[in-house]
Nucleic acid binder design. Structure first.
Lengths: 262, 262
DNA sequence: GCAATAGTGTCTGTAAGACAGTATATT
DNA sequence: AATATACTGTCTTACAGACACTATTGC
């Protein structure tokens, strides 16, 4: 017997509404990549009363476009504002949002209401996939004040995921890697001042391969998108590296025109 | 007074159905590019009883994904089969499918039925944009047997278009140009045997700029994606060009790995 | 001195970009 | 001969890719 006084019931208050202000068969899901300690992370959310982890996502109001919905959802769930969210693919395989553990019968029992088997919640839903890159330290992962837990996972060590969210993450990573080969990255992921090893390891982490440090530095400096400072970041036990900053003008120009990274 | 015996009425038989087998707030639109006489064309359709030309598009069944829907729509409207349709963007601006000439009142008058102002037809609809490239000669543009007229338009000489279809075409062209810089094209657009000027002018037409004939030939042959035949295509008034074919293996490899065209 | 990491210079091969002259066909 | 288009070769320069040694810091 399910306890109707728990918070799950509140969640389903929304589910059992008619949802008429939202697009019916379309949603958004955000793959939020963060970089930390030489590892590429993905931000996932977890409703403490249901099982699989999932991407931060949600429905789209009829008065907003999908980009706005993706931003809104990201902010609601993670507190992140003004993200550069990039649309990369629509996921629409028939039955992609079917879940054998979540049926009209189960919902009826939980809510005590009669649930139509054609209820919108069990209808086919396509989702627009977005990805973004964030500086890890900007995100305060503190889900305790909300009904949902929010947590970073290593890209290579993901938990079981809801529906086809594993596939969405795989495709997002593919799109991100395509992006990195043709446009500069790092501005959203690194602190204002960073070292050459910092940015090189970031590239290596995302691309999943080693890069020659000399050729890498030459490439970025000759494009003019990073500039060396006279400052040094003090480390211990070995030589301390110089600090660099992005030249935003050249960086934006490279974003516009595209570059070629091999 | 509107004549209810005309074919427009048949079209609206569909519109006034409940449409329950289709996703409610999502559709697909195809930008079908064709190449002919050094001009880049776009295939548009026209319902003879309503005014603006529009992209071939349609609704998505709940039992199919968006790619299948786009293929189905392309085949229904144009007879084209097995197209490589590439998803490039979702268009979802609020009100994008509003049309001041097409309202519940107008529809009521035409059909003689009472039309709810919340009818799905007037609801917000997002659309997934696809583009494709086809060999012009493969398409028989013969709309006389159908209720809709189908016609090629020069990319630089488009008629007024329905909703935001002009924007969809602009974005499709942008996506196509991005594609051509990173992957080979031509296989779907040129006849089996073609000349060097043929393929160079195709590139020039899509990119909208001149390219050096010597460097262009060197690039494609050194990549191994085209091969010279001993045959000659006989022309008049000047030297006749050699014929070339694609090396499909190298072509596919270039599609997989990506190339760089400057 | 040793360990650990940062930083820099050079060579070589390849490919891009610029460019001009010869070949073929028609009138 | 004149015209129109096709075809090809060379030079220069820039960049990618490979590679090895020196510098700094702490122990």
């Amino acid at each position: 017997m399910i306890d109707k006084t728990n918070k799950l019931f509140d969640v389903f208050q929304f589910f059992t509404s008619d949802n008429k202000d939202y697009l019916r068969n379309l949603a958004v899901d955000n793959v939020i990549f963060g970089y930390h300690e030489k590892e590429l992370k993905v931000l996932l959310v977890h409703n403490p009363y249901t099982n699989p982890w999932m991407l931060p996502g949600g429905y789209i109001k009829k008065t907003e476009d999908v980009e706005t919905a993706a931003s809104r959802v990201a902010q609601q769930r993670t507190g992140l504002q003004d993200l550069f969210l990039k649309q990369f693919k629509v996921f629409s395989a028939p039955g992609r949002n079917k879940d054998p553990h979540f049926t009209p019968a189960v919902l009826s029992e939980i809510t005590g209401k009669t649930i139509d088997k054609n209820h919108w919640l069990f209808d086919q839903i396509a989702t627009v996939g977005f990805y973004t890159l964030v500086e890890f330290s900007k995100v305060s992962v503190d889900g305790s004040s909300q009904e949902e837990e929010v947590k970073w996972f290593d890209i290579n060590d993901l938990p079981p995921l809801l529906h086809d969210h594993d596939k969405i993450i795989t495709e997002a990573l593919k799109a991100l890697r395509h992006h990195i080969y043709h446009y500069p990255i790092g501005y959203e992921l690194l602190p204002e001042k960073f070292t050459l090893p910092d940015i090189r390891i970031l590239y290596q982490t995302i691309l999943g391969k080693e890069m020659d440090d000399r050729n890498f530095a030459r490439k970025l400096t000759s494009l003019g998108i990073i500039e060396k400072l006279e400052e040094i970041k003090h480390t211990r036990g070995h030589r301390s590296p110089y600090l660099y900053v992005f030249n935003k003008e050249m960086y934006n120009q490279a974003l516009d025109q595209g570059i070629f990274f091999s």
